[in-house]
Design a protein around this nucleic acid. Structure first.
Length: 222
DNA sequence: AAGCGGATCGTCT
DNA sequence: GACGATCCGCTTG
């Protein structure tokens, strides 16, 4: 992955490739989409596209990623399970940027988790992306994950797995996910049914129903 | 300055 | 089902 952003024509090429691959129409998120309340953004991201791209000169960006099928909402300073419950620190600075900012943190010393910041500047919140339906760059993702290409189930199902598959790094914190090379596009049509349940792997606010997934997706992690 | 506890995953039983 | 890997932000002293 090179560069901090796509050129305009690269963005358009990526979108065109995504629409052709999926047979559906995907668009750039409407202005203010990520500035909505966090649970709204979380639900709205189900069915959307998350890709990363290695841009090469004179070529369309080479994409890796898929369709978002599982997310969790972290509500900000008043959510004890949210990193921003500590307020503004070096670690949580990205939370206070405008919606659509990437926030990547390391868990258990080994894995990285990718989040999209929500809410306008000055208000903290984010959505953790927990699982994708793999669609783009399967070979690339399998190589990064060090699993056989036949093992599609372990490519992107799980927050640590998908960051590895997409080549997302902690240093990507702060990037605008509408500009690439981490890119999110929203679909015209929402998934028909969204399931709701408690978040996974946390020690506080365990019962808050802030995990959302596409109810019949085989790619959900938990 | 040091200890603690994870928004996980792969391997082993 | 249980456990070890292994980093870092936060808390406490």
């Amino acid at each position: 992955m090179t560069g901090a952003a796509f050129q305009r024509h690269e963005l358009a090429a990526a979108r065109q490739e995504i629409c052709a691959e999926t047979g559906n129409q995907y668009g750039y998120p409407p202005r203010g989409f990520f500035d909505q309340e966090t649970s709204e953004v979380a639900r709205g991201l189900l069915g959307s596209v998350l890709v990363t791209a290695q841009a090469r000169a004179d070529e369309a960006p080479r994409l890796a990623g898929g369709l978002v099928v599982e997310v969790e909402a972290y509500l900000g300073e008043d959510d004890p399970a949210c990193h921003a419950s500590k307020g503004l620190t070096d670690r949580t600075r990205a939370f206070y940027n405008r919606g659509g900012t990437a926030y990547v943190f390391s868990a258990y010393g080994i894995h990285l988790c990718f989040n999209v910041v929500t809410l306008p500047v000055g208000r903290a919140g984010c959505v953790l992306i927990r699982a994708l339906e793999p669609r783009f760059g399967l070979r690339t993702m399998a190589r990064r994950r060090r699993v056989p290409l036949s093992d599609l189930a372990s490519l992107c199902s799980g927050p640590g797995r998908l960051t590895q598959a997409l080549g997302i790094l902690k240093q990507h914190t702060g990037l605008d996910v509408t500009q690439g090379p981490i890119l999110m596009l929203t679909p015209e049509i929402r998934p028909p049914r969204i399931a709701v349940g408690p978040r996974v792997g946390i020690s506080v606010a365990k019962t808050w129903p802030l995990r959302y997934w596409v109810h019949d997706s085989e790619w959900v992690s938990a």
